[in-house]
Design a protein around this nucleic acid. Structure first.
Lengths: 209, 209
DNA sequence: TAGATTGTTAATCGATTAACAATC
DNA sequence: TAGATTGTTAATCGATTAACAATC
């Protein structure tokens, strides 16, 4: 499955959860298409991939579909996440994920500022970066989030990899080098803003992501 | 030019600036390839697109290339940016962009919390959302950044569009509807984290973005 | 010149879209 | 049945990669 497809599944899940909260039982592909901005054919192909079948009469069952996507995306046991760098951005992410996904929870936060270590941030204890490798191993953490300044990112990535993390979400504006087996997703806010500024001036491409 | 290509140009510019700071005069495509993670052929094609030619003998001139990319990406007059939602994430972005890009500066911040309005955050005055449309028009703001909670995003987007913004960078986990002429880029942290978690477990695709 | 790099075209690859038979 | 929707294949589209002549 492609990176983009996984991203779309994640979006469908959010939309379906909202529908479920609103009391909807069933949904058609063209309705999900309207809400998500993707084509109806795209939606059908994606849902087919998760192994849940709809019916021409009723479309897709909302709650069953949420469950199927969960089966597909989530680890059955659950994956622990470590966040490194408890600045404004780090705290924003901690606040947002607090208690939201039991199967993908931020279970440890790290910083090297003694004013922050030992304290709790949005229900997550902040530990010293010096203890990171040990704690990642102990808590069997699988995913790391880097929210430190640019020139500390590589060092943090090395420690995460040393601890055994297999995926990294990197918010630092830096290209980090990791072994091939480790998956890295870069979220570079400068890049995103410059893209928006550019296409605000030029006639944009399709735009529906 | 494609969305991805613009993103790559933004990354090249950051890398080239770092090279210039380090005193480098020239750079070869394969060196930029190594640093960025893209292929050398890709780098050459991208640089060709901005209209700057290298030479087989010396490669590309670092400072000239930074300038050429700037000519291509940046508006000659400069574009103003408005940020809406001065929470942790909003403040992180304000701090990061403060004084960084003169041609793409955040010139106004908005919130509806009276505890925040009237104060300065990282050199940017926070105004009331009620004054947003007027101020966007007055300051000729071109780009909006949405860092408000999920269910306020559409309302904020409507106001940004009403003010005349042509591009929106949306950090809220919500699909916002805007007129076709407005370019929207969504940065959904949940989607990114779920992607990383998924590919941490499965053998990832190419991974070089 | 020889060797490496650039600019540019052709081939490949993958993802999206369109079309349509099967299904309720 | 008729009509709409789903599942699935074929056609299209675009971007990336590979190849190579031109250049220093």
């Amino acid at each position: 499955m492609s990176e983009r497809a996984v991203g779309r599944l994640s979006i469908y899940r959010r939309l379906l959860s909202e529908l479920a909260d609103g009391g909807s039982q069933n949904v058609y592909s063209h309705e999900l298409a309207k809400m998500s901005g993707f084509s109806a054919a795209q939606v059908r192909r994606d849902l087919m991939a998760v192994g849940y079948s709809g019916s021409p009469a009723k479309g897709y069952g909302v709650s069953e579909l949420v469950e199927s996507i969960g089966h597909y995306l989530d680890d059955p046991v659950g994956q622990g996440v470590a966040l490194v760098g408890v600045g404004n951005l780090g705290r924003a992410i901690l606040a947002y994920f607090s208690g939201r996904r039991p199967r993908l929870a931020i279970v440890a936060a790290f910083d090297n500022d003694p004013k922050k270590t030992g304290r709790d941030f949005h229900g997550c204890r902040c530990c010293d970066v010096a203890d990171m490798v040990t704690l990642i191993r102990k808590k069997r953490i699988d995913v790391g989030i880097i929210t430190v300044p640019q020139f500390e990112a590589q060092e943090v990535a090395d420690l995460l990899v040393k601890g055994g993390v297999r995926g990294i979400l990197n918010f630092a504006p830096a290209t980090i080098e990791v072994p091939e087996r480790v998956y890295v997703e870069n979220v570079d806010i400068t890049v995103s803003l410059e893209k928006v500024a550019f296409f605000a001036r030029h006639s944009r491409p399709s735009n529906a992501k």
